[in-house]
């Protein structure tokens, strides 16, 4: 590995570590559900390592526990993870034009809410080594948390689990607030997102929507309105 690439990889690992700590707490509780579905610690480790989707895995393990059909599992994966389609699409615009297809595909596989978040926050073009580093450490902790959760069950006190699970949202906040400060259109979009997301969770009928579906519908709606009202200026700094 070249020195520059290695330092970017290490940078990714450093940013991936707090994400991994949050993951560990969340996947620990996921492991408790996976145990109910009959998964062994190894299955939980490998399944989580290769999937890396909190809501998606939660949905699938609950389906397995009730012996649902394979078609239902496919549908569950599509609905709970469809936001990754949007995130990957946004990331396609973040690469320098000389990044190979293989690396793009591998970066796509790294996409989780958090890895996507820090990748978007990376200044300028995204060097693949950054999400790789972040993914390596956070995914390992994610998989480990699932396995430990399956074996150890409810050992961590609920206070600690609750406090740790807020970490992920803290990271989201750290990503969305600085650009909101710089660009008022982003700020207004963020406030609108908070309000509409909250409304959708309390209003009758609409609140029946799953969190995954709500994320997709609101993202498309709000981003489309923002793009229509306040289109960004086109800069072609990376056409080379």
């Amino acid at each position: 590995m070249r020195t520059a690439t290695r330092s970017i990889f290490l940078h990714g690992m450093r940013d991936g570590f707090p994400i991994g700590m949050g993951y560990f707490a969340v996947s620990f509780s996921l492991g408790i559900i996976a145990a109910k579905a009959g998964l062994t610690a190894w299955m939980g480790f490998v399944g989580s390592f290769l999937t890396r989707a909190s809501a998606g895995e939660y949905g699938v393990y609950s389906l397995i526990a009730i012996g649902a059909s394979y078609v239902e599992v496919v549908a569950m994966c599509l609905v709970t993870n469809l936001r990754y389609l949007l995130m990957s699409t946004a990331l396609t615009q973040k690469f320098a034009s000389n990044v190979s297809l293989l690396k793009r595909i591998l970066v796509a596989c790294c996409v989780t809410d958090e890895i996507f978040g820090i990748s978007i926050a990376y200044p300028g073009n995204l060097p693949p080594a950054y999400p790789f580093g972040a993914m390596l450490i956070s995914t390992t902790m994610w998989a480990l948390g699932t396995a430990v959760g399956i074996v150890a069950g409810e050992i961590l006190p609920p206070h600690v689990v609750a406090a740790l699970s807020v970490a992920l949202y803290g990271m989201f906040i750290a990503i969305i607030i600085p650009p909101s400060k710089r660009d008022y259109a982003v700020g207004i979009s963020v406030i609108a997102s908070f309000l509409l997301s909250w409304l959708c969770s309390v209003l009758p009928t609409v609140r029946e929507m799953s969190a995954g579906t709500r994320t997709i519908v609101l993202t498309i709606l709000i981003a489309a309105v923002a793009a229509y009202v306040k289109p960004i200026k086109i800069e072609d700094h990376d056409e080379a």
Partner: peptide, 13 residues
């Protein structure tokens, strides 16, 4: 706008 809106929607509530 997608990334900021998605993360905001997922954060709150």
């Amino acid at each position: 706008y997608v990334p900021y809106v998605t993360l905001a929607v997922m954060t709150f509530p």
